[in-house]
Amino acid sequence: MIEVSNVKKRFIKNVGKKAQEIYAVDDISFEVPDGTIYGVLGQNGAGKTTLLRMMSGIMSPTKGTIKVDNRSYDKHSEIIKKDISYLSGNTKLYENITPLELLHIFGSIYEIDKGKLDQRVKEIIKLLDMESFKDNKIGNLSTGQVQRTNIARCFINDPKYYILDEATSGLDVVSSQIIIDFIKQEKQRGKTIIYSTHYMEEAENICDKVLFINHGKVICESTPEKIKEETNTTNLRDAFFAVVGGKNED
């Protein structure tokens, strides 16, 4: 279980000559139960990326605590990170390395035994159908192939939690379907997925629970059905606008 309690993240932005404090995440608390797909939804700049980066230990909160299975990042960063795989639209891979090498290197960083790692790499390559391009440089792969490589590197440590930040944004239908299938499949295997997007339809289909955030604050947290019921809307997109109080412009 991931517990986020009273987390704040402050950035300092220079406006002209003066520095301004901005809270990208402002006092957010929630819990992610094991075995669910948890959606973090909001507009661009709402603080989704910062929140997920903090949850995966890439950034540390200015205030508040994040606990993963009752361990906090301050003391057990390396142990927690072995249980989490983070994938975002921004995470890129090294261009001059082949997928096979990448998996081996990452596996050894996760301190997986040599024999076990070889076995696991073989399995993953078979599972994701990467045989044809496993020895090509990542820089020469197509977007879909890169996406599969990215998923493969998330698989390597067989994590308990997946944190996916806008993983489908900017991808074509086929490539994003790879990710969606991956999410559904992993849920079947009892994994927990924390997932952020601004595609409301996508979230509506797969999320067990969603968290709406705006300007760094939680607006509401519930199941998609309940939210629709409460706001009297038929889809999550309208529900979001009803909650945020803005207009549905498109």
Partner: peptide, 14 residues
């Protein structure tokens, strides 16, 4: 610039 830093930091590295 290339965005690989984020990947790197999500790994269990001190």
């Amino acid at each position: 610039e290339k965005g690989t830093l984020e990947t790197l930091l999500s790994l269990p590295i001190k």
